[in-house]
């Protein structure tokens, strides 16, 4: 996933990674240390990559001005239309499940030019036909200023791209070893799979070596336990 994310980062762009996102942070660091050295990178709570000194307001204001080319969001539920649910499932006043809340996602999803949706688990209860509550809509009416929106969705199983014409997530590639059947079984909406099914190019030796070396060292400044547990290669 980190390698797939890294390949979406373009040199010279302004890229930001928010809170609780160690895998996007690893992917962006990998890109910054390889093909995107001139990218301007922000990683929440990373001493080398978080220059905001006037509260989260400074960050949100910076985002509202449309400065981010690439940002990352997730959701408790994600649907085929790219809608994200970070609020509740069930009756809003008596929910069966309450998520942490949308925070800035309903602004960032509009104002960051390309948003990559990420989820560390891919299951039918997460990737659903229609989310219970829309915190951040995948698409919006034409009479609203929206320079940005969903671009890809990256999971442990596959890469979706957001199709602008149908305004839905469509499978772009499956990761090596994942079958069409397995992907459909673990997705809560019917997939229109291309045949033959493209396979995500696997990580190269150079990418893996960077991930386990300099990316791990840098990532540890924001996510010490994740860097140690996942990238130390023990």
């Amino acid at each position: 996933m980190a390698v797939a994310i890294s390949r979406e980062v373009r040199d010279g762009e302004t890229v930001a990674v928010g809170t609780l996102a160690p895998v996007p942070a690893a992917g962006v660091l990998l890109a910054h240390l390889s093909h995107a050295p001139r990218a301007r990178v922000f990683i929440f709570n990373h001493e080398d990559y978080w220059p905001f000194r006037q509260g989260s307001k400074e960050f949100y204001d910076y985002a509202q001005r449309g400065n981010f080319d690439l940002f990352f969001l997730s959701g408790g539920q994600i649907d085929r239309h790219g809608n994200l649910n970070l609020i509740t499932i069930g009756d809003h006043d008596h929910p069966t499940l309450r998520f942490p809340g949308g925070a800035g996602s309903a602004m960032l999803y509009y104002m960051a030019r390309r948003v990559i949706i990420f989820r560390m688990d891919h299951a039918p209860r997460i990737f659903v036909e229609r989310v219970g509550t829309i915190a951040s809509p995948g698409s919006s009416p034409p009479d609203v200023v929206r320079p940005g929106g969903p671009w890809k969705a990256i999971t442990p199983l596959c890469v979706f791209r957001f199709d602008a014409a149908t305004r839905t997530l469509v499978v772009e590639s499956v990761h090596p070893g994942i079958t069409a059947d397995a992907l459909q079984r673990r997705t809560g909406f019917p997939l229109d799979l291309p045949a033959p099914l493209p396979v995500t190019p696997p990580p190269t030796a150079a990418e893996l070596s960077l991930l386990r070396g300099r990316v791990r060292e840098s990532l540890a400044k924001a996510y010490p336990r994740f860097a140690e547990a996942v990238l130390a290669g023990r």
Binding site: G102, A106, M107, L108, Y109, Y110, M111, I134, S136
Partner: peptide, 9 residues
């Protein structure tokens, strides 16, 4: 506030 239109807010 930018965004938010079209959401359940």
């Amino acid at each position: 506030v930018p965004g938010h239109v079209g959401s359940d807010y």
